[in-house]
Simulated scan of single mutants.
Amino acid sequence: MNTIQITTPSKNYPVFIGENAIWKLKSVLENLNPAPKNLLIITDENVGKLYLNEVQHVIGESFSCETIQIQAGDDQKSFENYIACQSFALSKGLDRTSIVLALGGGMIGDLAGFVAGTYMRGIRFIQLPTTILAHDSAVGGKTGINHPEGKNMIGVFHQPEAVIYSTEFLATLPQHEKRSGFAEVIKHALIADESLYQSLCKNVQTIDDLNGDSLLQALIRGIEIKNGIVSQDEKEKGIRAFLNFGHTLGHAIEGELQYKGITHGEAVAHGMAFALSLNENTVQIGNELKKWLKSLGYPPLSKTLSVPLLIERMKKDKKAEKGNIQMVLLKELEKPYLSSYQAEELEIKLSAFLEGN
């Protein structure tokens, strides 16, 4: 098992990552001060069937533990489930010493973190990721829910007490979830580690190549890259925006498709290819990326997508300024920067990109 220390202005905390890391959970809970009177596990129905009993077994009889399970899917990161979790916590008597455990992927981590960050003005929580994608989403303290007008528009920065990333949980991931998480690994490599990117291109020829020690080391490196950025810019006032590479278009695609038929990472993959097409120095990298992603089984974009509607959603992105769309681009590998576009200009470029896909 490996330990990575996350350092931010508001809180420092460990990420325990490796096989059977879940067994660190009890000692983490026992060492909290003040000691929690009770725990609330928030999970989804798919993850609950697979791992809830194991997590409860690890916790043992030392703590009173309640559980709420919601449906799976990113469309469940909603006001309705946020209120349901808050109401459940109140009904079970959670207080300011209580701990929320986020057992699941990015959707559960974001929702549970937002519940914890706003319950009684903020209580502690622990991330228990079960997906590849969550190597990114579980670290850094971004929490929130979706709004019909945009993804992750409602939320707070709320750092966890710990992230306990038990990699054996990844063995049950379906192919589309592996693709989703791998897109975030690729993102970290593109913005910060050219050697990692070249290694991934060479060694991952099918999505099933994501396994064992090579996957573990890629996840560790991704977490290290994110830590290096978040430690300098916890609340996205500057360079943390670079972690949104591919996300401006990706989030718009997800929203337009109502979070159905495409995963977060699959949408971000298209967003990264589009971003690479916007700088002549990275066009070739983008073309090679598209071919690689296609060979790995990433699905093409729906022909029903409307470019004007995508642009309208991109105008509501959190990075947007004065009606202009802020895109994260690359000057070259490892060299991200922000570039501002008027909507009309970007609409032309996006239309050309989609026609070529």
Rank of each mutant, 00 (worst) to 15 (best):
M327V: 07
V15T: 02
G18D: 05
F79M: 12
E177Y: 13
H176N: 15
E45R: 12
R313S: 10
L329Y: 07
G265K: 03
N279S: 13
E334W: 07
A218W: 15
G144F: 10
Q342C: 15
D208S: 14
N281A: 15
A134W: 04
Q69K: 12
K11T: 06
A72I: 03
Q217C: 12
M327I: 14
A183Q: 03
L346N: 05
F245C: 10
T143V: 10
K237N: 15
I239K: 14
F88D: 00
I6C: 00
K235G: 03
L276I: 05
K11C: 05
Y259H: 09
E61H: 08
A267V: 08
S195K: 15
T3H: 09
Q127A: 09
N46I: 08
T304S: 15
R124D: 11
A138T: 11
L276N: 01
E347N: 12
K202H: 13
F79C: 07
G356I: 05
F242N: 09
K24L: 09
M314C: 01
K237R: 15
K291R: 10
M107W: 03
L101C: 02
G250I: 05
A189Q: 04
S277Q: 06
T143H: 06
L338P: 11
N146H: 07
N33K: 15
P300Q: 01
D233C: 12
Q69C: 10
M120Q: 14
H264G: 06
F274D: 01
G109L: 08
F245S: 03
A162R: 03
T118W: 06
A112C: 10
Q258Y: 09
N211F: 04
R124W: 00
H135T: 02
T282N: 07
K26W: 11
D75T: 04
K178C: 14
G265H: 03
G246C: 09
L210Y: 09
D213Q: 14
L350I: 06
I42H: 01
E321I: 12
T172H: 13
F88N: 00
E54K: 14
G181R: 10
L215K: 08
S231D: 09
G105Y: 06
K331T: 13
Q69W: 02
V58N: 02
A116E: 08
E194W: 00
N287K: 14
P148E: 03
G261K: 13
G297H: 04
K92P: 00
Y82E: 07
T3G: 05
I59N: 00
F182N: 03
K26T: 08
E355F: 07
G212I: 08
E345C: 03
A252Y: 10
N227S: 15
L39M: 04
A343Y: 07
L305D: 11
L170T: 07
K335R: 14
E312K: 15
E236S: 08
G117D: 04
A352T: 13
A112W: 05
G48D: 00
N12H: 13
L170M: 11
K331G: 13
S340R: 14
L289R: 03
D208L: 10
Y337S: 07
Q217Y: 11
Y259S: 02
N203V: 08
F114N: 11
